[in-house]
């Protein structure tokens, strides 16, 4: 196989990994602050995709679609946090029941509204087409996803380490009581972070749409993948989501190249192994 073959396969893995990072970042953020394993995350992804698609079909603009979908889903997230999860703080079992309940409801709603057929999201005009690499073609949109994922990672990093609100979140993660005592409105912070997590999931839905598609069942599939990434990387760790995403993306790609018959195991077996060796993931805290 020529060198370009390996280069293209590496790019495949990295771009898929970046997509996984977008899915996982919100999940990890919410868990880090609120200790909520948000199962509705899959719905946020799916609804984001459907909203985005509806907007594209009406306006033709990808940017407008991204913004509308993300803010709409963020509002849904805020409502769920304010009126439901708020009252179940630190109670994992009923939290699981609520977030699973919403996953069911949204999944069913989506079939009622958009039907059971798979939908394909068109790519933004700027990024259609493919580049030629030796004898191979490489889709420009995937290169764009790599850049976009990196940009989001940098933005999140800056938000976390370079802004006041990031400092407040970090303080609340470390010690909520102290944060409250310092006058931080932790309750408002929770709502904002949950909304922002939903925003990120919807972003994944719209950006991933042109590659993965929007279809019934995507909510469960994406949720599963998101969990794998977050757990491998370590819950609540931004760095973990990024490296977890890239690791899973590359494992998946090269697993398919070298062990095509074992495609079922290339994600879950390494995950079990990593957890057995490092019980709280690569970058997680005990």
């Amino acid at each position: 196989m020529p060198v370009t073959f390996w280069l293209v396969q590496a790019l495949n893995g990295i771009s898929y990994g970046m997509l996984l990072f977008l899915l996982a970042a919100g999940l990890s953020l919410i868990f880090g602050l609120m200790k909520v394993l948000n199962l509705t995350h899959g719905s946020f992804y799916l609804l984001g995709g459907y909203f985005g698609l509806a907007v594209i079909q009406r306006t033709g603009s990808f940017v407008v679609a991204v913004l509308t979908a993300c803010f709409a889903i963020a509002i849904i997230g805020v409502i769920i946090e304010r009126f439901f999860l708020r009252r179940l703080y630190l109670e994992e079992l009923p939290q699981a029941l609520v977030t699973f309940g919403f996953l069911f409801i949204f999944s069913d709603l989506a079939t009622v509204i958009w039907g059971g057929d798979p939908q394909t999201m068109p790519k933004p005009d700027l990024f259609t087409g493919s580049l030629q690499l030796g004898t191979f073609y490489y889709p420009i949109y995937r290169l764009f996803i790599i850049g976009f994922g990196l940009a989001i990672a940098l933005l999140l990093w800056w938000l976390q380490d370079g802004t006041r609100i990031g400092a407040m979140v970090r303080a609340s993660v470390d010690n909520e009581e102290v944060a409250r005592a310092m006058g931080i409105d932790v309750s408002l912070l929770f709502t904002l972070v949950f909304g922002f997590g939903a925003f990120l999931a919807a972003l994944g839905g719209v950006m991933g749409g042109p590659i993965v598609g929007v279809y019934p069942g995507a909510d469960f599939e994406i949720l599963l993948l998101g969990f794998v990434v977050v757990i491998i990387g370590g819950l609540g760790s931004l760095k973990g989501s990024l490296f977890g995403g890239l690791l899973v993306g590359l494992l998946d790609t090269f697993g398919k190249v070298f062990f095509p018959e074992l495609a079922l195991f290339t994600i879950f077996a390494p995950m079990a192994l990593i957890l057995a060796i490092r019980p709280s993931g690569l970058f997680g805290r005990e």
Binding site: G13, L225, T253, K256
Partner: peptide, 15 residues
């Protein structure tokens, strides 16, 4: 090649 039902990324096979 036999990817699983619901595989989201076919790029390794296509390459």
């Amino acid at each position: 090649q036999f990817p699983n039902v619901g595989t989201s990324d076919y790029s390794p096979y296509l390459t």
